[in-house]
Design a binder for these strands. Structure first.
Lengths: 226, 226
DNA sequence: GTCTATAACCGGATAGAC
DNA sequence: GTCTATCCGGTTATAGAC
């Protein structure tokens, strides 16, 4: 069998078992067995169990980008564009909510390559941030200095919403939806106010701090938190 | 030997080994050996390795409260008081930096009792929030509506700083210190500006959202993220 | 019934033969 | 690239000491 098929077969078995039994019960041995492959062989293709989870992330990430589309819902203001992206995000990850806690556990381990702040996740993070850059680019009424920091800030905001979503056990995660819609509203308003440069010194200080943080990261990234 | 001493000895050994070798290398067998106790005995007192982490968590929390003291450094303005609390926090956790990543791994697992948003952590979270309430209480120039939300917000802020710290590999975590000091400065300024109620509607909307989120939590907490 | 110790068990990960 | 055999460490079962 072609190596590519073997790898796909293992991944398929893993995703099946994750869905059927959850993360803990889906042992590497069971995955290998389901894929009719030896344990060692499974490890030949996937360095660790975590690498199998990465498939989930990559998939939902790709799905989100596709769902967002090229025109971002054709909206022209920040509120509409951000709302579109966030809605698509929540819709994309919704089917995985019951597994999310386990799947995202490794994501929050700073030593894990799955961590969104890690070197390995940088490509995905960059792509995700690019989506928010597109959100911002389509809007006129944003001051230049703010425009520069906004994509990163929005990405961070979206991570916060996802974190809330993970913990949200309300029916259909309606609380997350409510929070998301109200906070998107707020963000649009705050950006509007801030863009009129009404609060000179404080605003400048905030932007300077954000700029410095990004500069530090360029060298040897500790993270983007806060 | 009295049981209490045995338990303390095991915890002591565990913390030592966590500090010396980090979490992975500090095996339960090594911990038991260091404590001159059998493996089974260690498990008699601590149901799992996670329980040892919980003990660590409780201890640093208590240390922080003690370090903060009753007068919060005798400062009278928000900047000084918050700075004092945050400095004590970073000083308290500093010795455990290399093992902190693991602490946070389980802490961010929504199914883990260690999760700061979990039911089990509620007492600690409440105590920690109380510290920030004391920070706020000692300051005069804060508007009433803001004063109500601030303790929770500051707790959340402090979690963000800790998250940054965990990822921060700079010498002595100087980046975290810099970020902390600058952001404390900013928070004090923002609170000052916001307390003069200059930005009516936006400010009211933000506070209303925060109030609603807290109200939701009262019933069946999904989390306090963002 | 409270504590301690030893010997498994289980699953993630690795080594090395083919 | 695929296998088998093995390691390693968290966890559990269980036997016994006080």
């Amino acid at each position: 069998m072609a190596p590519r098929d073997t790898k796909a077969k293992i991944l398929e078995a893993a995703l099946e078992l994750f869905r059927e039994r959850g993360y803990e019960a889906a042992t590497m041995r069971a995955i290998a067995k389901r894929a009719r492959v030896s344990l060692g062989n499974a490890y030949y293709y996937f360095g660790s169990k975590e690498h199998l989870i990465q498939a989930f992330y990559d998939r939902t990430h790709a799905e989100h980008i596709a769902a967002v589309g090229l025109e971002l819902g054709a909206s022209k203001d920040l509120r509409g564009r951000l709302l579109w992206v966030m809605r698509k995000k929540l819709e994309t990850i919704q089917p995985y909510h019951q597994f999310a806690s386990v799947l995202f556990r490794s994501a929050s381990d700073p030593t894990s390559p799955l961590n969104p702040f890690s070197r390995e996740s940088e490509p995905v993070r960059r792509e995700a941030t690019a989506v928010f850059a597109r959100v911002v680019d389509g809007v006129h009424a944003i001051s230049k200095d703010l425009r520069e920091e906004l994509p990163n800030l929005l990405w961070l905001y979206h991570m916060g919403i996802v974190l809330y979503w993970i913990h949200d056990e309300s029916e259909g995660q309606w609380r997350t939806w409510k929070l998301m819609e109200r906070s998107v509203d707020l963000i649009a308003k705050v950006v509007a106010v801030a863009s009129m440069s009404g609060l000179g010194p404080v605003r400048r200080k905030i932007l300077a701090l954000l700029r410095d943080l990004r500069a530090d990261e360029e060298h040897e990234a500790p993270g983007t938190a806060q």
